[in-house]
Design a protein around this nucleic acid. Sequence first.
DNA 1: GATGAGATGCTAACGGTGTCAACATCCGGC
DNA 2: GCCGGATGTTGACACCGTTAGCATCTCATC
Lengths: 212, 212
Amino acid sequence: MKRNSYHHGDLANALTGAAIDLARRGGPEAVVLREAARKVGVSATAAYRHFAGYGDLIHAVKEAAQAKLADSMATELAATDPLPDPAADAERRLGALGRAYVHFALAEPGLFRTAFCRSDKSHEEASAAMLESPAFRMLTETLDDLVAAGRLSLARRPFGETTAWATMHGLAMLLLDGPLAAVPEPERLGLVDGVVDTVINGLCGPADRPGR
Amino acid sequence: MKRNSYHHGDLANALTGAAIDLARRGGPEAVVLREAARKVGVSATAAYRHFAGYGDLIHAVKEAAQAKLADSMATELAATDPLPDPAADAERRLGALGRAYVHFALAEPGLFRTAFCRSDKSHEEASAAMLESPAFRMLTETLDDLVAAGRLSLARRPFGETTAWATMHGLAMLLLDGPLAAVPEPERLGLVDGVVDTVINGLCGPADRPGR
DNA sequence: GATGAGATGCTAACGGTGTCAACATCCGGC
DNA sequence: GCCGGATGTTGACACCGTTAGCATCTCATC
């Protein structure tokens, strides 16, 4: 990490990259501005020429982590073969998306936690950014396809994104930091499959079960 | 926050209380050892006579927050009238537990986030502590009752706790810090109800839907 | 090509944090 | 009555984010 001239040339990206590396290793609390500057070989205050402050830096890392999550989900989704039946295929995609979400969390815990760490950005901005993300769009399309295929009732459709996302997000959190962190490796994937199956059943099951 | 003698008399509890108050107002990142000592009117290093360090202090706050969550859930569960039909009542309790979980998160966001913040305790300990908590026991009993009533299939029973908990936990997280934080107040409760309905449907729906 | 302005980097310093070592004070049991 | 251990204090250290003021480079303009 050396530079030949007084000016770095690409400090903003270099700092972001170093900060991403810190986040990957230790999550958001490991992202420290001075350490990132140190890794790049620059004084700490140089960062203030490119970022408003710590909040701005970690926000860049957060966005990068969210992008990596979306990329990972898209890749894993594309890695499985589609099914001929549209309804079954939409269900397959929904399950694959959920599994990919948790798989990323387990494979890159530091980045995943950073992607959802608290930041001082306004809620509106954060919400808008997420709704436009490729990952969310994949989910929305899949749910629309489930409705088109007659698998997901219109009554439950409005809660589709939230239920699916919340379930996988909660599962990831409980597995990473929560009480499920003690679940041994081999059982984890089975647990994920079971949860995915249950949430799909909740969305695609009958709109009105008997006896309610 | 004054004391008349050189010794405080109950510093450990006083510090924990002050720290809990900080957590209530600003979440885990607002829990700062020096500030808690300041509120109690004691030097910062005095805390080291009662806590191994910061990690120990915030762990005490975390446990207190978990206990408050469990209390709140038990209270809200008891506030609704039971149904005569055992199966319907078990479903009612499952829904009430889920709603109470998110209600606490929305009513006490600082404490909720502290209850699930990262800490250096071993995963095994954290897991064991959670499995013994009253809140988890309520969930387990309710799921067992659903099985006894024939509402929850044995095939899905093993994932019951995880699915229910993960869904409500993820929903709470997304509402507090995540992209759902922008959802306006009036819509939130409807969203919670919809998610609760869907997860119950997933657990109590038919074990094998047609076309899978 | 010289030059001046703006962009970019540096050092020094401030207040904040958790933590340790050394010292001061109180309380309970001999 | 006294002394040892428990409890609280002061002072210091390293680290953090941040600011002010200064140094250096780059580049458009004359």
